[in-house]
Design a protein around this nucleic acid. Structure first.
Lengths: 225, 225
DNA sequence: CGCCAGGTTGATTTCGCTCAAGCAATGTGG
DNA sequence: CCACATTGCTTGAGCGAAATCAACCTGGCG
């Protein structure tokens, strides 16, 4: 639980309350943590692994809303507002996740103002992130959107070498990557082809080789004629 | 200040602290409350009027992120995270807005856990809203997106009649409406024309007449062949 | 009166979606 | 061990919707 830093603001006694109530479980890759539409029975804290939040449309098309990493806490929105989960959570790889029931969470929020503030900080960051995506989806051309996505994914899933090159393991299938930047998977495939042709990056399965990160970053610059 | 219900959780003494520190001001329509990129010196509480949050791209294209109504509080994200404002705030019509400096806000957040929880609830709602828009922009056809936007605006800016018709005053120019659903203003103009041709709504300046709300809602149904 | 911002309309082109086929890797049952 | 389905991905052809560019309109205002 040490790594779940949202909860690190708790004092000794509060930490005991938490420890008594939390329930840890291992989820296999691809396993559903909670489905969309379920009522919020409590919160989930990602201890290890990776989790994806996705929402499916009435038409059946799904959009990947967020990738969640260790230390982050899920599901307190529905708990606080008493609504059902607007998105479903799914483990992207084998993950350890703690569940804390609603009454315990409410008790801790009541006792320690800092816990709520931690949540608030995180939620604000997520809001900023979502708004960033709204702007980008509205204004940038597709190739630029994808280049940006690659750079973002690099922070968590990539390794940079001294010579300016980098390697990256994509945590998601093409379909989901495409949904993140609001395009179809076929279009993404073509964009990948073009990036490869131009020597910006090369793709093989889920691994991406980037010969020169600076070149990739130049993709983000305003389209000078 | 009664209407600013985020702050209604404060006790007598805390309310006095707030009253001593807050600074009220009137903003004219079109006036900037804070520009994008400014550091967060405190929070703003909308007492009356309407405020828009917009973000401008490096290319100069602007996206309208949110319409803010009385009772809501702005700008605590930058305050909490110590970053600059990611979006600018602008009064859409003549508005009364209170400013509360950062140290006072922090003091109150420290003293009363419920204030932070109020902010958290609101921020969660905004996050859900932003994600909703992400999904819609990604999956729905343009005409459907606009129909949905009209219905959302109706809650705040419209009046429904007994016979199923309704009237609506748009709070924004076409350009901004278009940016909310990630299309160009010319495209929006054409969509309006088509809705008018189909008898769904008629537009004249900023007023919209909707002969039958049910017909408008039917626009949202999955495109049955 | 001329100017300007906001809005509409038209013509053209481009980009991305759709549909469809093909491919490689993996799994499954006979 | 092979025939066969399945899944994830790529590629191609054609089409349509929306972006772009540009002209024009309209009402408000100095």
């Amino acid at each position: 639980m040490r790594r779940c830093n949202d909860w690190s603001v708790l004092c000794e006694e509060e930490a005991r309350i938490l420890a008594a109530a939390r329930h840890r479980r291992r989820y296999a890759a691809g396993e559903t943590i909670y489905p969309m539409g379920e009522p919020g029975y409590g919160v989930y804290c990602v201890c290890s692994g990776i989790v994806a939040l996705r929402r499916v449309d009435t038409e059946g098309s799904s959009v990947l809303l967020q990738i969640v990493y260790p230390g982050d806490t899920l599901g307190y929105e529905s708990l606080l507002t008493g609504t059902r989960h607007r998105s479903g959570a799914e483990a992207l790889r084998s993950s350890n996740i703690c569940h804390i029931n609603g009454t315990t969470v409410r008790e801790l929020l009541e006792r320690n103002p800092n816990l709520g503030l931690q949540f608030l900080k995180h939620t604000s960051a997520k809001l900023a992130d979502a708004q960033e995506r709204l702007v980008q989806n509205a204004t940038l051309p597709n190739r630029m959107k994808f280049a940006h996505l690659l750079l973002v994914l690099m922070d968590r899933h990539g390794t940079r070498n001294d010579d300016g090159s980098a390697r990256l393991h994509l945590p998601l299938p093409r379909e989901d990557l495409a949904s993140m930047i609001a395009i179809r998977r076929e279009t993404l495939s073509r964009i990948m082809g073009r990036l490869e042709r131009d020597g910006v990056a090369s793709f093989s399965g889920r691994t991406v080789a980037i010969p020169n990160v600076a070149t990739l970053m130049r993709e983000l610059e305003p389209h000078l004629i």
